[in-house]
Simulated scan of single mutants.
Amino acid sequence: MEIVSVLMTFGIIVALSIFFYFVPFFLWLSAKVSGVHISLIQLFLMRIRNVPPGIIVPSMIEAHKAGLQNITRDKLEAHYMTGGHVQRVVHALVSANKANIDLTFEKATAIDLAGRDVFEAVQTSVNPKVIDTPPVAAVAKNGIQLIAKARVTVRANIQQLVGGAGEETILARVGEGIVSSIGSAESHETVLENPDSISKLVLRKGLDAGTAFEILSIDIADIDVGKNIGATLQMDQANADKNIAQAKAEERRAMAVATEQEMKAKAQEARAEVIRAEAQVPLALAKALNDGNMGAMDYYRLKNLLGDTEMREEIAGLAKNGLSSLGQGNTPPPVPKRRD
């Protein structure tokens, strides 16, 4: 009998657990007490549709207490079944209603299904967010580099959350504006004297167009002086010009050397031709003597002429090398004898 009573007790407990799981009586009671009209059959059917009543009912109670009359059970169930965050959407709608922000249920669910945190967006719209930009390097017209850091105060734009660009786009556009502002300055000293000119110029560009945020202010937090980029570029250009000039000079030198070698080769060819022609002279003389066209006296007179020519050449060479020493008491060089 004890075993039967234990089994009956266990069966009753299991049956009640199953009953209260499929028919969440206490949730129904909480809804009734809160003024939300929902039946036990609807809660049972929510279990059958695999929609957790523990999420839908508290959300309905929160919306009802906040005075949001257009939020129904069917809308919440439909949003849950499409993969949305029901509680986050309801929190956002309640916060937007208290802050007098125009946010409809359809817009909130669209933002949530787009992958954005709609509740955080509403909080950012009420309490603006500060975004710190990474260091942005830019060069003024005088060639001095400046490294600036900015703080961007943004507020969420509820109407642009679906399809609007995020924080990365804001940072990129602000960085682009800083570079443009510094680059248009005549000198880096002008930027250092008036850093607010950067923020004013950037704000006038309307950088928040097409983004999910509205830029409220851009404040320059820090500016550091970097390298002298202009001087570095000039040095690099001078080195490049020097290397080009050296390369052209080397090319001209190589061409001159090649021309010199070519002229030397031509001179050697000319000397070879002269030697070849001189080698024909003795043969011509011998032939002239054999043929009787030239006598012995003619040959001797020719030899005397050649000897006189050699003597004159020797005298000219000695005079060229030794006349400077004659005035110093030196003995003049001997004059070569004439050959008969």
Rank of each mutant, 00 (worst) to 15 (best):
E2C: 09
E2P: 12
I3F: 06
L7N: 12
G11S: 07
A15L: 15
L16N: 05
I18F: 14
Y21G: 01
F22M: 06
V23S: 05
V23I: 08
P24I: 01
L27C: 08
L29S: 10
S30R: 15
S30G: 13
H37W: 14
H37R: 15
I38M: 10
L40N: 03
L45N: 02
R49T: 06
V51Q: 04
P53M: 05
I56S: 01
I61V: 12
I61T: 03
E62Y: 03
E62L: 10
H64L: 03
A66S: 07
A66R: 05
G67T: 06
I71A: 02
T72P: 09
K75Q: 12
L76D: 04
A78C: 08
Y80P: 00
T82G: 10
G84Q: 10
G84A: 12
V86A: 02
V89L: 05
A96C: 02
A96H: 00
K98Y: 11
F105E: 10
E106Y: 07
T109V: 14
D112T: 01
D112Q: 02
L113F: 08
L113E: 05
R116G: 04
R116E: 05
A121D: 12
K129I: 06
K129R: 13
D132E: 10
N142Y: 01
N142D: 15
I147N: 11
A148R: 01
K149F: 06
R151S: 11
R151I: 06
V154A: 03
A156I: 05
I158Y: 00
I158Q: 02
Q159Y: 10
Q160Y: 10
G163W: 07
I170S: 01
R173P: 04
R173L: 13
V174I: 13
V174L: 04
G175T: 00
I178M: 13
I182T: 07
I182L: 08
S184N: 14
A185K: 08
A185P: 00
E186S: 12
V191H: 03
L192H: 11
P195M: 07
S197E: 10
S197Y: 06
L203A: 09
L203E: 11
R204D: 14
L207R: 03
A209P: 03
T211N: 08
T211D: 07
F213N: 02
E214I: 14
S217L: 07
S217C: 11
I218T: 05
I218F: 01
I218Q: 02
D222V: 12
I223E: 04
K227T: 11
I229H: 02
G230W: 04
A231W: 00
D236V: 11
A238P: 02
N239P: 00
D241N: 14
A247W: 05
R252F: 01
V257C: 05
T259V: 09
Q261M: 13
E262G: 09
M263T: 11
A265K: 13
K266Q: 13
R271A: 08
R271P: 00
R271W: 09
A272Y: 05
E273L: 14
R276K: 15
R276E: 14
L285S: 00
L289Q: 04
G292S: 09
N293E: 14
G295A: 06
Y299R: 12
R301F: 11
L302S: 08
L306S: 03
T309L: 10
E310T: 06
L318V: 09
A319N: 09
A319Q: 03
A319R: 05
K320T: 09
S324L: 10
G329T: 06
T331I: 13
P333K: 10
